[in-house]
Design a protein around this nucleic acid. Structure first.
Ligand SMILES: [Mn+2]
Ligand SMILES: [Mn+2]
Ligand SMILES: [Mn+2]
Ligand SMILES: [Mn+2]
Lengths: 222, 222
DNA sequence: TACAATTTTTAGACTGCTCTAAAAATATTT
DNA sequence: AAATATTTTTAGAGCAGTCTAAAAATTGTA
């Protein structure tokens, strides 16, 4: 296996996120540039080089997708990232909105043995603190059937199991109102004026959620 | 506090090792180059830049030493390095000869909160798996009174508490013959032909050690 | 003290990754 | 289909960090 720089790894990860995780066939130069906060010209340059190394399939003006070798590296990175997030939350007691940036650095530490032992130490978890699946050593990815809270009808309920997107701002908000992975949420009322909804949390507190929030909460229906 | 690249951090760490840890007033360009496996010309270049940032005191041809700000960064790095080594051995069950290279990468992860929580999680250890002192958050460094095994007389004994140098080859050898930090060692015989010695390990097994090994074992006399 | 050996610095070049500005290609609208 | 807008690539440059070769300074020795 070739040794890539953290920078190259980050490009592969961005492409993975924009294709496989977004369920799109290819990623565009601009999308990668935006995702990585970088100029489009820099992306073009790197795509040429990653293509040279046969990690991606790239044709000028036609977008890009991962080759098998590139996907392998990307899933390994995502695996490391999410295992470290799990470690930070479960062992070091960080909050779920504090761990992403640290994991962003930890994911580039190179040692297969380290990942394996960490996985073992953590009890081979399948999902990270944000509910995202942790790719397995063989590259396969755990799946579940999740429904956005916004799609539920009055009276229905489920367990919060994942987030559509997870900006820190959303996670901080949820933390403040005591909603997290594992929280039971029941729909009490739908307000069709602004698509906001009234819910009951863990069979206790009632509160309102905006449409934007309810679309972001993914539930396992129970 | 300024943000340095991993490379700049590594230079500061090398200078720290060659001055404070080696109990020398200054480090030479060549010594740094050798320590870091890098050309002397590259070192000169970087010294100019670190000097510009007031992290080191450097005069052409006269060697270099750390400024207060540089020392602070260096001790923080050593602290992180050794805490991670402790984590790898105590929690992930790595052997003491397997952790240095991994810690070399982990030490560059930037998060004060991470170091603090790791320290807490590990029980604020004072020494790493090789017996080296772990600098505290305030920059002070735990000390002990240690004696090389080679300086002991027949009949004397002590507990192995540190190593003078610790190349992997030495650590693997010690592991194979069941000597590690905490092992009780008693001197049975001195062979003045080659300065080798006969010892008893943990009041059980007897064996011979070469002069080179016995000079490297630092004991707390008991 | 002068010559030789060693160490250190300078000069100049290269790679990886980034940028801005401009050109080219593609997509959208009229 | 032509004009316009958008996206992508190319061109050219800069910075950090590295190298080798050569020059300069320092140190050791005759
Ligand atoms: Mn994350
Ligand atoms: Mn996550
Ligand atoms: Mn080490
Ligand atoms: Mn150590």
């Amino acid at each position: 296996m070739i040794r890539l720089s953290p920078t190259e790894e980050n490009y592969l990860k961005a492409i993975f996120k924009l294709t496989e995780e977004a369920e799109r066939p290819t990623a565009t130069t601009n999308a990668i540039a935006t995702e990585m906060n970088i100029a489009a010209a820099s992306v073009t340059d790197m795509l040429r080089r990653l293509s040279e190394k046969e990690l991606i399939h790239y044709e000028k003006y036609k977008g890009v997708r991962l080759e098998v070798s590139g996907r392998k590296i990307a899933t390994a990175l995502v695996r490391k990232h999410r295992l470290w997030e799990y470690f930070l939350v479960e062992k070091l007691k960080f909050e779920w909105d504090e761990v992403h940036d640290i994991a962003e650095e930890l994911e580039h530490v190179r040692s297969d043995e380290l990942v394996n032992r960490l996985d073992e130490y953590l009890g081979k978890p399948n999902f990270d603190p944000h509910g995202d699946p942790i790719p397995r050593a063989d590259g396969t990815i755990p799946t579940r059937q999740l429904t956005p809270l916004s799609a539920l009808k009055v009276g229905e309920h489920g367990i919060l199991t994942g987030l559509q997107d997870h900006p820190d701002s959303l996670m901080r908000y949820l933390r403040k109102v005591n909603i997290g992975i594992g929280t039971k949420i029941q729909v009490l009322e739908l307000h069709d004026f602004d698509e906001s909804i009234s819910i009951r949390i863990d069979d206790e507190k009632e509160m309102e959620l905006s449409e934007k929030v309810s679309k972001n909460l993914l539930l396992k229906i129970s």
